[in-house]
Computed example of a mutant assay.
Amino acid sequence: MAPDLTTWAQVDPARYPFDPADITAVVRAVAPAPESAGESQTLAWVDAVSLALAQRYGPWAYHWYWTPGEHERWGWIGERIPVPAEAPAFVAESLQAWRRFLESLAEQFNRFLRSLPLKLDELLPAWEAAIAQVMTTVIAHIVDADSWQGWCRRALRWLLTAAGVPAEHAQALVDVALGKRFDHWVPVTATIIGEVAERLARDLLDPTGIMLVARIDNWPDTWPQRWPSWRATNTGWVSG
């Protein structure tokens, strides 16, 4: 079964070492890409490659063709597989683009979560700014103005789960913040980003629920081998 990648732990680059040098070898170990094949054969090959990459690099690699904007620029993955001889390089390029996107989010998440203010009255604007920044980063990669909603939902769930919010709670918060009014074609604007950021931050820091009040500043900037990510051991969540 394909990983759903709903939590940051499934895609966090800090958890999954990555050496791009052997991507093509991993792909070549799978049966050659089908040439002039039907859709079912092509998708079967994509699934086989995805499984091999996930086994080698971690669950994040299963969706090696997920980089925001790739679908809009090049079409569905089943429509853009090149001839067999060029397929390994194509997969390697797509996987590395996907990894770079995740690393760019990781930098943002780490910078924000390490600098959370201690004062409660400063938490709300800090979260609003972080949410707006994540949305802006994701939207910048998207070509089709109608596809921003799905990617913003995914990235915001990752941000919340990176901060220790349980996955189901994170999904509920994001769903409420974005709402059904954005399920149909609605061009994104700075006003929409601001509204979503304000609503999500307010709901996240509801004083009657769970509040993120701890500042994570007791961990080094670099990690010795085999050390856990701070996200795995410091949730920063307390009952309000």
Score class of each variant (00 low, 15 high):
residue 103 E to W: 03
residue 130 A to F: 04
residue 94 S to D: 14
residue 87 A to Q: 02
residue 120 L to T: 10
residue 83 V to S: 09
residue 101 F to V: 06
residue 128 E to G: 06
residue 132 A to G: 15
residue 133 Q to T: 12
residue 125 P to S: 13
residue 117 P to Q: 13
residue 92 A to H: 02
residue 104 S to D: 15
residue 95 L to Y: 05
residue 78 G to E: 12
residue 104 S to N: 13
residue 118 L to E: 09
residue 126 A to V: 02
residue 125 P to E: 14
residue 112 F to V: 06
residue 89 A to G: 11
residue 99 R to D: 05
residue 102 L to G: 01
residue 97 A to M: 11
residue 91 V to L: 11
residue 111 R to D: 07
residue 132 A to E: 13
residue 117 P to S: 13
residue 78 G to Q: 12
residue 118 L to I: 08
residue 126 A to H: 06
residue 133 Q to K: 11
residue 77 I to V: 15
residue 103 E to V: 13
residue 110 N to M: 11
residue 119 K to D: 10
residue 75 G to A: 08
residue 94 S to P: 04
residue 107 E to G: 08
residue 111 R to T: 12
residue 80 R to T: 05
residue 77 I to D: 07
residue 132 A to N: 06
residue 109 F to S: 00
residue 78 G to K: 10
residue 120 L to D: 12
residue 92 A to Y: 02
residue 110 N to D: 15
residue 107 E to H: 09
residue 81 I to T: 12
residue 109 F to W: 01
residue 134 V to Q: 12
residue 126 A to C: 08
residue 132 A to I: 07
residue 129 A to N: 13
residue 129 A to K: 14
residue 89 A to L: 08
residue 77 I to T: 15
residue 113 L to F: 03
residue 78 G to H: 12
residue 122 E to Q: 15
residue 127 W to I: 04
residue 104 S to F: 01
residue 133 Q to L: 14
residue 72 E to V: 06
residue 74 W to D: 14
residue 98 W to Q: 08
residue 94 S to T: 10
residue 102 L to T: 01
residue 130 A to N: 06
residue 133 Q to F: 04
residue 90 F to N: 01
residue 84 P to I: 00
residue 130 A to D: 07
residue 88 P to Y: 01
residue 84 P to T: 01
residue 78 G to A: 15
residue 132 A to C: 12
residue 117 P to G: 10
residue 83 V to H: 09
residue 125 P to V: 14
residue 121 D to T: 09
residue 80 R to E: 10
residue 113 L to T: 02
residue 129 A to Q: 14
residue 118 L to W: 01
residue 86 E to W: 05
residue 117 P to N: 12
residue 100 R to N: 14
residue 115 S to R: 13
residue 103 E to P: 02
residue 124 L to N: 01
residue 83 V to C: 07
residue 102 L to E: 07
residue 84 P to K: 00
residue 73 R to M: 09
residue 79 E to K: 10
residue 76 W to Y: 08
residue 99 R to K: 14
residue 107 E to W: 04
residue 131 I to P: 00
residue 74 W to V: 05
residue 111 R to V: 02
residue 82 P to F: 09
residue 106 A to F: 05
residue 86 E to C: 04
residue 85 A to F: 04
residue 109 F to R: 00
residue 102 L to I: 07
residue 121 D to E: 10
residue 90 F to Q: 02
residue 122 E to R: 13
residue 114 R to D: 04
residue 86 E to I: 04
residue 108 Q to V: 06
residue 105 L to E: 03
residue 109 F to E: 00
residue 92 A to K: 02
residue 83 V to M: 05
residue 74 W to H: 13
residue 130 A to K: 02
residue 128 E to M: 14
residue 93 E to L: 12
residue 97 A to K: 15
residue 74 W to M: 10
residue 112 F to Y: 10
residue 90 F to P: 00
residue 125 P to H: 13
residue 118 L to R: 12
residue 109 F to D: 00
residue 127 W to C: 09
residue 96 Q to M: 13
residue 86 E to F: 06
residue 97 A to H: 15
residue 128 E to C: 13
residue 85 A to H: 07
